[in-house]
Structure formats: C-alpha cells, structure tokens
Amino acid sequence: MFQKADYQLCILIAVSAALIGCHKPLEDSVAKQIKAETSAKAASEQAKSLTQVAGQATVPVEKAEPVLKNTMPQNAQPYIGRYQITISCKDPFVKCDQGTSDFVINLLADGTAHRTLIHLGQITFDSNFHYRQDRWSYDAQHHQVILHRSNGVEFFYRIDKDENLVMDLDKIAHASAQNQQYFAEGNPFPQQAYRLLKEKVS
C-alpha cells in the first residue's frame, strides 16, 4: 500500500518536472518578448516626450515675463519711466571717491521705484549701500513726484515742462521730523537741486 503510494508520488513528481521543464523555455521566450515590447514602448514614450519638449522650447512671452499691474492713478501715468543724471563724486550724496556717478530712478507702473548709483561700471544702491524697494506717488496739487523710501524718508521732485524731475531741496530737508532726523544723523544731503532727465521712449 505504501509502495503504491510512493510510486504514484514519484510519477506525479516526474510529470510535474517534465511539464515545468517543457514550459521553462516558453516562459523565457515570453519574458524576453514582454521585455522587448516594454523597452520599445519606453523608447517610444521617451521619444514622444522629447518631441513634446522640443516643440515647447519657445515659451510664450506673456508667460515668461509677467506684465506689471498698473496701480497708478491716471494722472500719475505720464511720469512712469526712467530718469537719470550724472553727478560729480565731490557731492557726498552719490557716495563715490572720484570721477562721476550716474544716479538713476525708475518709476514703475505698479507703484514701485528703484534707485541706483552707477560708478565706474559698478552698481551700488544708495540706501545704506544695499537695495530696498521704494514706493512712489504723484502729488497733483503741487505737481510733484514723491519717493517714499523704505526707511520712511521722503524725497520730493518737481516736474518741469519737459517731464524731468527736479529735486525740491527745501521739502526734502524739512517735510517731516523723520526727514530732519535722517539728515541730522549725518546722512548725505544733495549739494544742489539736481534735474533728472527722463529717458525718451522711441
């Protein structure tokens, strides 16, 4: 009885081994085919994604450069632009040792103002030697542009007939207690009422 059972078990094991042996090359072949198809599909998808990337190489201008939101009132918009003057380094206001320095103010449509001093090809910022974003506004009653510096000090510029900016030294010196304190602390005051010429837009 045990011998018959052992014999049947041996036959079952032999048949199973034979079946497994027969199917092994078939499984290997199927596995290779699946791998080949997967590799081909992956290569195709990679080529497709590269084509899509190449097709999108040119980014639309409106996405690459966001347009500044115009927050300035209508009567202030004519004064949006770039203003510049060259000042001798003899004036401590421009913070250079010799030669000249270009003092540039950019008034932007979003109400921000950017001041830079450019001397001998090097750019420094005139607010404690580092950049701080300012704000600007237009005073219609006095026909002036006011720069509201980030430190609370305000600079006043009269607008001449050619839309250039001319420093109002009296207002700059005395407009507020904060202005008076700022210059009393030894911060450089302009030696003259400089006229910053507006850059003409072609």
Rank of each mutant, 00 (worst) to 15 (best):
F2R: 14
K4A: 12
K4W: 11
K4T: 15
D6C: 02
D6Y: 03
Y7R: 12
C10T: 14
A14H: 11
S16C: 11
A17M: 14
A18T: 15
I20A: 13
I20M: 11
L26N: 03
E27G: 00
V30I: 15
V30W: 04
A31W: 04
I34D: 03
I34T: 09
K35W: 04
T38A: 14
T38L: 12
S39W: 11
A40T: 10
K41G: 03
A42Y: 13
A43R: 05
S44D: 14
Q46R: 12
A47S: 13
K48N: 11
S49L: 10
T51P: 00
T51N: 10
V53G: 01
A54G: 15
Q56C: 13
T58S: 04
V59F: 09
V61N: 05
A64N: 04
E65D: 09
E65Y: 14
V67R: 05
V67G: 00
P73V: 12
Q74N: 09
Q74H: 06
N75G: 00
P78H: 03
I80H: 03
G81P: 04
G81V: 07
S88D: 13
K90P: 01
F93K: 02
F93P: 01
C96Y: 04
D97C: 00
D97G: 02
T100D: 09
T100L: 00
T100H: 05
D102I: 10
F103R: 02
V104S: 04
I105G: 00
N106E: 14
L107E: 09
A109K: 07
G111C: 08
T116Q: 09
T116M: 06
H119T: 15
L120R: 12
L120M: 06
Q122P: 00
I123C: 01
D126W: 03
Q133T: 15
D134E: 12
D134I: 04
R135L: 13
R135Y: 07
R135V: 06
R135I: 04
W136Y: 09
S137E: 09
Q141C: 00
H142L: 06
H142R: 07
H143M: 10
H143F: 08
Q144P: 03
I146L: 12
H148K: 14
R149N: 09
R149F: 08
G152K: 10
G152V: 11
G152Q: 09
V153G: 01
V153K: 01
F155E: 14
Y157M: 07
R158K: 13
R158C: 03
I159H: 01
I159C: 01
D160N: 15
D162Y: 10
D162C: 01
N164M: 06
N164R: 07
V166R: 04
V166H: 02
M167D: 10
M167C: 04
M167W: 12
D168W: 10
K171I: 03
I172L: 06
A175T: 11
A175Q: 12
S176Q: 05
Q178P: 00
P188R: 07
F189M: 10
A193K: 07
A193F: 11
Y194E: 06
R195S: 05
V201C: 00
V201L: 12
